[in-house]
Design a binder for these strands. Structure first.
Length: 891
RNA sequence: GGGCAUGUAGCUCAGUGGGAGAGCAUUCGCCUCACACGCGAAAGGUCGAAGGUUCAAUCCCUUCCAUGCCCACCA
């Protein structure tokens, strides 16, 4: 019946199946469908990027969820897209121009328009790459709705958002200290700053009557404030506001004493001078006391004229010279070369951060003006409320604590960047005048703000800006409300159901989507946030793209093991929020599972007649079939429960265990019977195709390939997900077959030992009452399995059943040469078993004579323990006898 | 300094208030007509340590030890 190739070779069919899904438009969502919506917005990978293993995890998880919901009858939309990744992209392209064309400063040489054209060109080329890579993973997203954070429609949303926030007074412009990167010549947000431990000399200088500590002497020119803790007894003689004259780097200065609690009296001398222009803490102290601020370093990282003889020097060079000058003046008290401290770096590929004060745009997170649940709340309060109230659920929920902590310490968000690639700030200037508008004023000579918005500003709108109708978004006459109102996608698919992303961008992105969406739309962007962990190497190192010795390339893995195997490997053995280790052996094991699915399918297709229905059989006579259906039914139930709780690894564990361990290893083996009835065939086809459906969200390719052999018109991707069948509950049959399995396993173990010449008790075991009963009722199954389990087929065959098996074993025993056997090991093993068994027995007896236990434990537990204890007694007795006999043999 | 995790078989990890589980690796026996990417069997664990709650703890509570991550203005 089948034309399937013999061997499982995923490379030979995966691409074909993906193309088939696409040409049939199976993943295209219908905004007018009556079905309930289920939406996932794909976290947009950087448009310039290559698919890396972190993306692969994201794609696997989301595809599983969306396929499951689609098959379960939801109108499923998984919306893909890419992010323009402002700083990272601009940086890459500028570097490329520098290296390939030898242009030292491309921005100055080429101008804004040309640079933007080049970046756009570069992005256009690489967007296609990532799209194909996403498809290779088997992702069932709706490509007809693909979006890009720089789409015109999204730009409209960005501008509308900016303008409304400005009008509400939530966006303001002002001079603030920012994290300036002199390398990339832009500032970055607090969250984009990485701190690394570095060792740099810690200097102590004489500053008037005080000794002050610093690692940054080069900023100290303008220092005319000396700060200490108000409670510090050592400096009680000095009052806040006292002034004194002292000798400093470039001559005498007048200094003022400031008392502030930000100072740690334990650190250094408990006294420091401040440089408000170039340090966050100092800036805050200066703000508190209304102190002067003065720039010392320019935006290129060089000293300003205030440094006099040092002006124009870069920081590092200036530092040593200044220290030398102070030493000569006798003001250097000591140097600690071993000092380590956390220095700030730009995590977006830049260098050291040099804080600067600049005019920047900010979002005010504390202004309580937003109508929310009948009150006026601030952005920060709403952020807390939606998670606390359960409107948004974090999975796993332990991230609540970190989330609240972050929100509580949230400062105003600096949204302007001094780069060109991105959404340009919709602020227009004409002399003294400023206009904030979605479009440049028609009249007059207005100049737009040169800065662009933080990438996260536009991605914060992702869930809803991607659902606005792109054409409506171009209608300048329509308001944003009207556009949203008339966009069918937005009305149908927002809010989304699940946001799935790495826990490392909970703050960058997830929190900001909540912030912007609740403000603009008045509803949450998503209901559930599923957070996945980092991918690590076998020994726990973080997999890094730039380090080829640690990174596993998903595309190479797909080539070698298939996309199905990769998906499984990224899911198995991991919970939400848990880091995951990936290594070749794991991929190999997952490939073997796919191979097992393949071969089981081939066997079934080869042995059932063409046209066998895959519908659930109505009447099932055979006990074996009943056992199968019962187990399958339980599996479906478990799977449904686990999926509902997003315990995605548990699901595949259950499925693999039951499919491989029960269906293949027992059912298919016991089923190997030349005279199979129609009923048997139908059960087989039904059970197997049910597995295909259950497994499909995890391994879409191999299941779809096999499904295609069952003569169904509909593709598996849109088949109905299995639900428990009330008619398939057969507890008695289930219990009996389980007993058969257990007995057979025992017989196999005994047979192995007999071959080793180590057991004298086989005949006795075979004669035990329980086994005798089973042999009588299940001869046929046992014989079939005997044939397949390396038991001596000839011996069993013409007279099947217990007698033949017993004869076989007696014969084996007769062949054993007692004198050649070392019994001591076997005796030891048996004694160990005896010890654990008696241990359990003692424990059970103690429990059973405990009144508290009898009174408080559930009845089922008590009776179960009684049974087990009785059984244990028998086992103990049997073990004693065996040991006794072996000891006799040994002597 | 605050916060959050983790510690279970040699390795990677599931799991549960009622005699410890999977995959890989190991040992032994099998090329059995779906699959050697396989089949059968075995071995391997004071479930990090010590207390407490409970009739009963690997699981709940406390403390400790180890490991990792996040946040924070220590100049």
């Amino acid at each position: 019946m089948t034309d399937l190739p013999k061997a499982y070779e995923p490379q030979s069919f995966e691409a074909q199946i993906a193309a088939e899904w696409e040409s049939r438009q199976l993943f295209r969502a219908d905004a007018h469908s009556p079905k309930p919506p289920f939406t996932i917005s794909m976290p947009p990978p950087n448009a310039t990027g290559q698919l890396h293993v972190g993306h692969a995890v994201m794609l696997a998880l989301e595809d599983i969820i969306i396929r499951w919901r689609r098959m379960s009858g939801d109108e499923a939309l998984w919306l893909p897209g890419t992010d323009h990744a402002a700083i990272a992209t601009e940086n890459v392209v500028l570097k490329q121009i520098q290296e390939q064309e030898g242009i030292a400063d491309p921005r100055a040489t080429l101008g804004r328009e040309e640079v933007l054209r080049r970046i756009a060109e570069y992005v256009e080329n690489s967007r296609g790459t990532i799209r194909n890579q996403v498809k290779a993973m088997g992702s069932s997203c709706d490509w007809s709705r693909e979006r890009y954070t720089m789409d015109p429609a999204l730009n409209r949303c960005v501008n509308e958002t900016f303008v409304r926030m400005y009008q509400d007074g939530l966006i303001y412009r002002g001079p603030r200290i920012v994290n300036w990167d002199p390398n990339l010549k832009t500032n970055v947000s607090d969250d984009e700053v990485d701190r690394k431990e570095v060792q740099s000399p810690f200097y102590t200088f004489q500053y008037g009557p005080f000794q002050i500590g610093t690692v940054r002497p080069e900023t100290k020119f303008g220092d005319k404030y000396v700060v200490m803790h108000p409670e510090d007894a050592r400096y009680a003689d000095y009052q806040h506001g006292d002034t004194f004259e002292c000798e400093w780097i470039n001559g005498r200065i007048t200094a003022t004493v400031i008392k502030d609690e930000a100072i740690d009296p334990e650190f250094g001398t408990g006294v420091m001078t401040i440089t408000p222009w170039h340090d966050h803490t100092d800036f805050e102290i200066a703000e508190r006391h209304g102190l002067d601020k003065e720039p010392i370093i320019d935006f290129d990282g060089k000293l300003l004229p205030v440094a006099q003889e040092f002006a124009g020097l870069p920081i590092e060079a200036a530092r040593t010279q200044i220290v030398e000058k102070l030493r000569q003046k006798g003001l250097l008290v000591k140097v600690d070369d071993q000092y380590t401290h956390a220095k700030a770096f730009n995590s977006r590929g830049g260098g050291a951060i040099e804080p600067q004060i600049r005019e920047q745009w900010f979002i005010d997170v504390n202004k309580e003006i937003i109508p929310w649940k009948g009150e006026h709340r601030s952005l920060r309060e709403i952020l807390i409320d939606v998670v606390r109230s359960g409107d948004i659920q974090l999975v796993p929920d332990r991230f609540n604590a970190t989330y609240f902590h972050w929100v509580e310490n949230l400062r105003d968000w600096c949204i302007s960047r001094q780069i060109w690639w991105g959404h340009r700030i919709p602020a227009f200037y004409q002399g003294e005048h400023t206009q904030i508008a979605t479009q440049a004023p028609a009249e007059g000579n207005w100049e737009q703000d040169p800065d662009t918005l933080d990438t996260w500003f536009s991605s914060a709108l992702w869930t809803w800006s991607t659902l606005v109708d792109p054409e409506l978004a171009q209608e300048a006459s329509l308001s944003l409300e009207q556009i949203l109102e008339r966009s069918p996608d937005f009305r149908k698919f927002h809010p989304t159901q699940v946001m799935e992303t790495g826990y490392d961008i909970l703050f960058f992105w997830v929190a900001r989507m909540i912030l912007m969406t609740t403000y603009m739309i008045g509803e949450v962007p998503f209901q559930t946030v599923y957070l996945h962990g980092l991918v690590r190497t076998r020994d726990g190192r973080k997999m890094s793209k730039s380090d080829p010795t640690t990174a596993i390339d998903p595309l190479e893995s797909i080539d070698e093991y298939g996309a199905d195997a990769l998906r499984l490997a990224l899911i198995l053995g991991t919970g939400p929020g848990q880091d995951l280790r990936l290594y070749p052996e794991k991929l190999e094991a997952c490939r073997r599972f796919a191979n097992k699915i393949w071969n089981a399918g081939r066997y079934i297709l080869m042995t059932i007649p063409a046209g066998t229905p895959i519908t659930p059989p109505q009447q099932v006579q055979s006990e074996l079939a009943q056992w199968m259906l019962h187990g399958l039914n339980q599996t479906v139930e478990t799977v449904q429960q686990s999926l509902g709780g997003y315990r995605l690894s548990e699901v595949i564990d259950t499925l693999r265990g039951f499919f491989w361990g029960e269906f293949c290893d027992w059912y298919l083996e016991m089923d190997k019977n030349p005279q199979r009835s129609d009923e048997d065939n139908q059960v087989l086809a039904y059970a197997y195709t049910t597995f295909l459906k259950l497994l499909h969200p995890y391994v879409p390719f191999v299941t779809e390939a096999l499904w295609s052999q069952f003569g169904q018109e509909q593709m598996l991707a849109v088949a109905d997900f299995p639900t428990p069948q009330a008619a398939h509950v057969f507890p008695e049959a289930h219990a009996r077959i389980e007993l058969v399995k257990e007995s057979i396993s025992q017989i196999r173990a005994l047979r192995d030992k007999a071959n080793l010449g180590l057991d004298k008790k086989i005949a006795a075991n075979l004669d035990s009452a329980a086994h005798a009963e089973l042999f009588r009722t299940h001869q046929d199954l046992i014989v079939r399995l005997a044939r397949l389990s390396e038991l001596n087929v000839q011996a069993v065959e013409p007279a099947p059943g217990r007698e033949a098996l017993a004869a076989y074993f007696s014969e084996t025993l007769a062949r054993i040469d007692a004198s050649a056997v070392d019994w001591s090991k076997e005796i030891e093993a048996l004694q160990k078993k005896l010890r654990t068994e008696t241990g359990f027995l003692e424990k059970s007896h103690k429990k059973l004579s405990n009144e508290g236990f009898l009174a408080k434990a559930p009845e089922a537990v008590v009776s179960e323990l009684r049974e087990k204890a009785t059984q244990a007694e028998r086992t103990v007795e049997a073990l004693r006898q065996q040991i006794h006999e072996l000891e006799k043999l040994a002597s």
